[in-house]
Design a binder for these strands. Structure first.
Lengths: 120, 120
DNA sequence: TGAGACTATATGCACAGCGCACACATCGTC
DNA sequence: GACGATGTGTGCGCTGTGCATATAGTCTCA
């Protein structure tokens, strides 16, 4: 990388969409469309990223160094040449952790304010 | 109210700033500037709302019915006539609870993704 | 065979929300 | 009376968003 990554805290709060994208890539490399499906699946259909939002978010995350695009292609019989695959970087992971910590703090405040009804 | 309040879920996700404003008003009615100070205090200085963001957010929240402005003034010896006091509405409270529930779900996903280091 | 749905990426457009800077007035204190 | 803190507000530009649209290959089913 040309410039050093800025402090993870400078990017917070992360747009919800961005955080979902990072979670989708936490365990596996995926291409854009697969990210949309993964997010929808793990949120039980509650969060459905629109295509416009997704692809522009990815562009931004690449520029900021949270994601990198893979040059390696899967085996030809599994591949679809239209796809572009992405992987979360170490920096991206640290930003995601910072955001998770921020959310945890926020939730503690919400609980103190009586906004959290159930246990949680 | 002229129109019925839309489903609380339609407003989610709430901007972080909005959620902080609602938390500041959860227990006490406050005027704008006091909200800025309260948010800064309860976040240990981590979140400092800019004036521009705050007053425009309040305008929006009034229009959406999450807040109402108080007509009653405090006792004259405690008052500052420049101030405008706000109170969270029942609808605002229900929206805040919906947002808190969303954050709790998000945090569960973050934990499953390994982004939550500590216990939390 | 052809219509329609799904997969896949990308851009144009309009709008919401944000920070920064600025404006303006009052209040408290020295 | 000067100065900083209090208090509310607007102008401007930037980022991030959804919706619509473009393009194109694949798959299914009548």
């Amino acid at each position: 990388m040309q410039r050093p990554d800025p402090d993870a805290a400078d990017l917070l709060p992360l747009p919800t969409t961005t955080f979902h994208i990072l979670m989708a890539l936490a365990d596996d490399d995926r291409h854009g469309y697969a990210i949309i499906q993964d997010v929808a699946e793990r949120t039980g259909g509650e969060v459905t990223l629109s295509a416009g939002t997704l692809y522009r978010s990815i562009q931004r995350l690449l520029e900021q160094g949270l994601l990198e695009e893979l040059t390696q292609r899967p085996a030809p019989e599994l591949d679809d040449e239209r796809r572009r695959y992405y992987r979360i970087t170490a920096y991206g992971r640290s930003v995601a952790k910072a955001e998770a910590a921020r959310l945890a703090s926020l939730l503690r405040l919400a609980r103190a304010s009586g906004f959290l009804t159930g246990r949680a």
